[in-house]
Amino acid sequence: MNLMNRFVPKNEKVQLLHTDPDLNKKMSNRIISWISGNHRELVVVCIGTDRSTGDALGPFTGSFLEEKQPRNFHTYGTLQDPVHATNLKNYIKLINLQHNNPFIIAVDASLGKTESVGNIIGDTGSLRPGAALNKDLPEIGDIHITGVVNISGFMEYAVLQSTRLSLVVEMAKSIAGLLCEVDKQLTSKRMFTAPIKEENYRLKLNK
């Protein structure tokens, strides 16, 4: 057990720059502490659309993660089959039908202060996709990971559209790498013994 786990409450959020060399170690330890001890199916839902640069963080993360073929996660939301505002409610129904009481890790882009851009934030509880754009969407996630892709406070839709793709891709790679580290630790600890099915359940709705 490292010092962070000893002295920081495990339910406290963790926030690190996506280029921080200790990102995988520190944040994976925290995520493991949040899901440790439960044997529910693990589902990663990466939210966003490839039609907006800033909002493509989720689909890029899902695609990068799916390429790694994690053993302990079912992945929803990729560039090919995104989970976004139009089909989110249907995906939530599908996930609950396909998985018995799943433990959901939600991944989404967010806007924040200038000094927070490029940061990855992990926290407990659900998130509200589209909140920055005043969209009324259902909450999702037992825990969530967000990436601050740009600044908030003015013309959020335009800000998302003008976000640099290079930053989004690099952050998505970091989040996917983080989740792969979590998957590796789960596998080594044999926390989950039920094999992940080969099938990928997707809805191809309103891409």
Rank of each mutant, 00 (worst) to 15 (best):
Thr187Val: 13
Glu139Asp: 08
Gly118Ala: 08
Asp108Leu: 11
Phe7Trp: 15
Asp22Gln: 14
Thr193Gly: 00
Ile47Ser: 03
Ile31His: 13
Met171Phe: 08
Thr53Arg: 10
Ser166Lys: 06
Ile31Leu: 14
Leu205Lys: 04
Glu139Ala: 06
Gly58His: 02
Thr19Pro: 03
Asn101His: 11
Asn2Thr: 05
Asn119Glu: 10
Gln98Ser: 13
Trp34Phe: 11
Ser52Trp: 09
Ile143Val: 11
Lys26Trp: 01
Lys204Asp: 10
Cys46Glu: 00
Gly141Ile: 12
Met155Pro: 01
Ser36Gln: 09
Ser63Leu: 14
Lys204Pro: 01
Ile121Ala: 05
Val14Tyr: 12
Asn206Met: 05
Gly130Val: 05
Ser152His: 07
Ser110Gly: 11
Glu67Gln: 08
Phe73Glu: 13
Ser162His: 12
Ala194Gln: 09
Cys46Tyr: 00
Asp50Val: 02
Ile145Phe: 08
Ile196Met: 13
Leu23Asn: 05
Leu16Ala: 08
Pro59Gly: 08
Ile175His: 09
Lys184Phe: 13
Ala109Ser: 08
Phe60Gln: 07
Leu17His: 08
Ala106Pro: 00
Asn206Ile: 03
Gly37Met: 08
Tyr157Arg: 07
Glu41Leu: 07
Ile196Arg: 15
Leu186Phe: 02
Leu3Glu: 11
Ala85Leu: 00
Asp50Arg: 00
Met155Gly: 00
His39Gly: 06
Glu181Pro: 02
Met4Asn: 09
Gln80Leu: 09
Val159Phe: 12
Leu17Lys: 05
Lys13Phe: 10
Asn119Arg: 12
Val45Glu: 05
Thr163Trp: 00
Ala172Thr: 04
Arg164His: 11
Gly37Phe: 12
Thr53Trp: 06
Leu167Cys: 02
Leu179Lys: 10
Glu181Trp: 10
Leu133Ile: 03
Gln15Ile: 02
Ala194Asp: 10
Ser166Ile: 06
Phe103Cys: 06
Phe73Arg: 10
Ser162Ala: 15
Leu3Met: 07
Asn29Val: 00
Val83Gln: 11
Leu88Thr: 02
Glu12Trp: 15
Gly118Thr: 01
Ile31Cys: 03
Asn206Tyr: 12
Gly54Ser: 04
Met1His: 13
Thr19Glu: 14
Lys25Trp: 01
Ile92Ser: 05
Ile32Ser: 15
His39Arg: 14
Lys204Tyr: 08
Phe60Arg: 07
Asn100Gln: 13
Ser174Val: 03
